[in-house]
């Protein structure tokens, strides 16, 4: 009985499925088939010119017993979580403050300026910040003005103590404008009557921001958090551009390690095994974040 009912529904939606067809075909060919092949390779010793052989879990075993991967995982998560937190606050600040600005031109100018870093690739952003943080760069110049001539420039990029903070800051710098746009988009859809009612009740504008604006964009915040969780282990370009040997211990992350140990040395098996583990870890992290946010509960109709 049930089967025919489902069949009926499927039949009803047949045009809808047709609309999905190109997407499914694309993902099967360009995402899932390569994925399956990649996972297949992760159980093999692959020679670059062919001639691979099955070696079971050896690739995985080598990764798990290598302490560098654990360190890289924790680096990934620390830098990723820090970047997310800062970028989140930074973007939220921009969005809320921009919403208070009346002048359309000023608003648009600030929004554009804060969005520009998002348009640039890491190759550009990394180089820019390395220059700014160099001994002769802007930050040291600024510190010199404050501290006088006896000041000895700090080589920020070679200080392990600053390494993660720099990655977090530059990561947030690049993405804050993007988050700001997302939050602002949510803010403008909030019903203005709520604000007016609160205003009549004597709530100050600041109170309104805390008690109306922020709760009303909570759903956007959750999506942003979830998307960030899905991307947290995929940060490669930033570290590749900005790391150097003095700070590598603090910032080397998973994809960097895969690149260094796998791709550069043409080792396909270990690289795909490590990447499979990254995929698994991403799924676990996303799932956990979803749970923590009670993501599904709050939105079930």
């Amino acid at each position: 009985m049930k089967a025919t009912k489902v069949y009926k529904r499927i039949k009803r939606y047949r045009f809808i499925y047709l609309m999905l067809l190109p997407v499914v075909a694309y993902f099967l060919v360009f995402s899932y088939y390569p994925l399956a092949l990649g996972i297949f390779n992760s159980f093999r010793q692959v020679k670059i010119l062919g001639g691979s052989k099955f070696i079971g879990l050896e690739n995985y075993h080598n990764i798990i017993k290598n302490p560098l991967y654990l360190r890289a995982l924790s680096n990934s998560i620390i830098v990723g979580a820090g970047t997310f937190a800062l970028q989140f606050l930074w973007g939220l600040t921009i969005a809320i403050l921009l919403n208070e600005i009346k002048s359309k031109i000023v608003k648009s100018a600030i929004q554009t300026a804060t969005f520009i870093p998002y348009l640039l690739s890491w190759a550009v952003v990394g180089g820019l910040w390395i220059t700014i943080l160099s001994p002769t760069g802007m930050i040291n110049g600024f510190l010199k003005i404050i501290q006088g001539d006896s000041f000895r420039p700090i080589v920020f990029m070679s200080e392990p103590a600053f390494a993660r903070e720099i990655m977090i800051f530059t990561g947030a710098w690049k993405g804050a404008g993007y988050y700001a746009a997302l939050f602002l988009a949510a803010i403008v859809t909030i019903d203005q009557n709520i604000y007016e009612a609160a205003s009549i009740d004597g709530a100050s504008r600041w109170k309104q921001i805390i008690h109306i604006t922020i709760p009303n964009i909570a759903s956007t915040m959750k999506v942003v958090a979830l998307l960030a969780a899905m991307g947290v282990l995929r940060n490669f370009d930033q570290i590749f551009m900005m790391a150097n040997s003095s700070i590598l211990d603090k910032v080397q992350n998973l994809l960097y390690l895969i690149y260094n140990d796998g791709i550069i040395q043409f080792k396909i098996g270990p690289a795909t095994a490590a990447a499979t583990l990254v995929l698994l870890a991403t799924m676990i992290i996303s799932f956990t974040v979803r749970r923590l946010l009670r993501y599904d509960d709050s939105y079930r109709d």
Binding site: Y32, I263, A271, V278
Partner: peptide, 18 residues
């Protein structure tokens, strides 16, 4: 959604063959 989580290194080789 799963397609958003796949790391590029995993599919590097096969995407080329494809």
């Amino acid at each position: 959604m799963l397609t958003m989580m796949i790391p590029g290194d995993l599919t590097l080789i096969s995407v080329y063959q494809m």
